[in-house]
Amino acid sequence: MKHIDDEKLLMVYLGEASQEETDAVLQSKQACEQLDQLEADMQAIENASNAHNQNPLPADYGQQLWHQIADQLESPAENKVSWWHKLQSYMLQPHYSLASFVLVAGLVMVAFWAGRQQVNGGIDGQLQEQLLAQNIQLHLTQSEIFLTQVSNGNGTSTMQSTAQRLLTSNRIFKQALANYEGQFTQQILKNLEPVLLEYANNPANQIHGQQPAANWVNNSTSNDLMFQIKTMKKQLAEKNDII
């Protein structure tokens, strides 16, 4: 028999041939005999595969297999439930509802506290103190120049506005220092304030050529104040530390 006939015969046996091809094969006695032989051979092959099993399995193979895979099994249902749904279902259980409320309230409190901490602690405390110290140092320098000018009689028409600006700065720094333990710096600013206040409240012509009533140059404390300002400036310049 030709090669193509064997293939056609196999397709008939496997039920893959068309009805016409099948009918044509079955009309031939020789083809029918060949088909019978093919069926017998295929059955023998199947029987041989079943009978001669080269892979004998132990009686408890199923149990062994289960032990090997049991730890690796992950239910699709477990996979599909997201953490959010788990949390949601937990929250909605009646006996956990009060605990859930407390938990949420606690989380809000913690978030609020953390937020405040972030605002307060946003700038490092030490850095903040250093910046303040440098600004006070600059303020004291400007105040020293101002006081030196007025004591030398070199006051100009802008002296009153300068005094007013320095007075404003002085009050701001004094307020800022209220949060710090350093008393000496705060005391110098307190001593400086009445002097600046006097010059800020007097007209320009009074400053120019005529010392105010509380002429600080002639005041017994003036030298002390100037000394304190210089010392404090030096302290701030060297250590950047509010004392």
Binding site: N53, N55, L57, Y61, G62, Q63, L65, W66, I69, A70, L73, S75, A77, E78
Partner: peptide
Amino acid sequence: GDKQAFRLIVLHYATAVNR
């Protein structure tokens, strides 16, 4: 998701699947 039920399935079909 009953793993014990699935264990029974493994015991029942393990040999057939391996073969």
